[in-house]
Design a protein around this nucleic acid. Structure first.
Lengths: 224, 224
DNA sequence: CCGAAATCTTAAACCATATTAAGGTTATTT
DNA sequence: AAATAACCTTAATATGGTTTAAGATTTCGG
């Protein structure tokens, strides 16, 4: 039940009300009895009532339109964003103006430019909603406060980022050792639902190839 | 002075004696008054005497020969290794038998297959000493004990891995957006000392190119 | 429901990098 | 110091992937 090292079981309480527009966006997909962030944290370790209140008070809900940016190159990354609903991409732009997708984040995932967030320096990256989305965002001072008042959050975020690190490392290994076709096939395998939600051009950008070449790969694959 | 959020200053005590062979390997490079791991941790947060003893009791020093493996594909990764002296590479092997370097780790860096370490599952990776080296290694049960008895270690390792994550993310961005020449130049810039210690073939493998092509890149660069 | 915008596909020419094979140089071991 | 192993370079050929340009299809906003 828990993603890390704790056997105790949890009793969920009905306390938090999801705004209407959230239900409209995706009415059936989510259990509406708990605050999404608490639900997320409790997949790692249990939280008591006081801790839950601390978290809820410092996370603010925000609705994001398709194509809206929540981080722009040149600005510091001010928030950690937890995706309640929808999907985002984080990308960099090279000198020719071409975008390169570094990461996608859908429901129950975090997205932020971690380096810029902690250093306060201008980011080199963009984060854009690829679907109409809802996030819970936490400001730096609030997250730091939460780390101090709920020490197990250090543990939880350590585990979260360890898992992201492992994924990223596998991606690097793939990038330096496989052909584009192999990378595309493992993307489909690793992110089957994402691959249906995203335009192919976005997937191509993530794989480090042109949309044209992905098109060719898809043709080759379908002809077998 | 500290790498994270704490202003207090530290008083170093002379308590730990480095074995002779370590001084032989690299006599002048390191301050010999403190245990290397404590020194490392205290660049993040200060440790009291009791905490230092806990850490020292659970880290074991190990001397590794050049080309010796400290992790092999098919075995679980049993230790977190902190490099006191020397240099390691972590690599995967593809179906053709070609090795692909994922990461190097020199003095004061950690190296482990984090996924395999936590899951206990067989690793797909190798970790090999590229120089005669000395490490301090911590077993899983000891590290988990330390996490429980010294909670700030959660914080410290969270920050360590956040930094590694940011580096890795930059590498992914480079891989999907730059030519091999650009990647080689930024490798030289980012790791100037490593680039002198490593054989070019190892650097090529890290960059995801063949040694022959790196050779051509170096020729092109020298002809300008 | 329409028009505009975004997305997907095809194909030819071109470029970056791999492969193969060979010879030359530098370290390590004995 | 010699022998061996590891490492580096060169060059010809082959391949994976890009570029460009154009047309076809789908999606979205009004």
């Amino acid at each position: 039940m828990f993603k890390c090292l704790c056997g105790a079981s949890i009793i969920l309480t009905v306390r938090w009300r999801l705004p209407l527009f959230l239900k409209r966006i995706n009415p059936q997909q989510r259990n509406l009895t708990t605050h999404p962030l608490i639900e997320h944290f409790e997949t790692y370790l249990p939280f008591n009532e006081e801790e839950k209140k601390l978290v809820e008070a410092r996370a603010s809900l925000r609705k994001i339109k398709r194509r809206q940016l929540i981080l722009q190159e040149g600005f510091a990354c001010k928030h950690y964003a937890f995706v309640v609903n929808g999907c985002f991409r984080m990308y960099g732009v090279d000198d020719k103006g071409t975008e390169h997708n570094l990461q996608f984040a859908a429901e129950n995932e975090w997205i932020a430019d971690i380096g810029s967030f902690h250093s306060g320096k201008p980011s080199q990256l963009f984060i854009e909603a690829v679907e109409p989305s809802v996030i819970l965002q936490i400001e730096k001072k609030d997250l730091y406060f939460l780390y101090l008042s709920i020490p197990k959050l250090d543990r939880i975020f350590k585990v979260i980022i360890e898992n992201k690190y492992v994924d990223l490392q596998n991606r690097v290994l793939q990038n330096i050792s496989s052909t584009a076709q192999q990378r595309y096939l493992s993307f489909l395998e690793q992110y089957p639902t994402l691959s249906l939600r995203l335009p192919n051009a976005q997937i191509a950008s993530y794989l480090g190839i042109t949309p044209e070449f992905l098109s060719k790969i898809r043709k080759d694959l379908s002809e077998r």
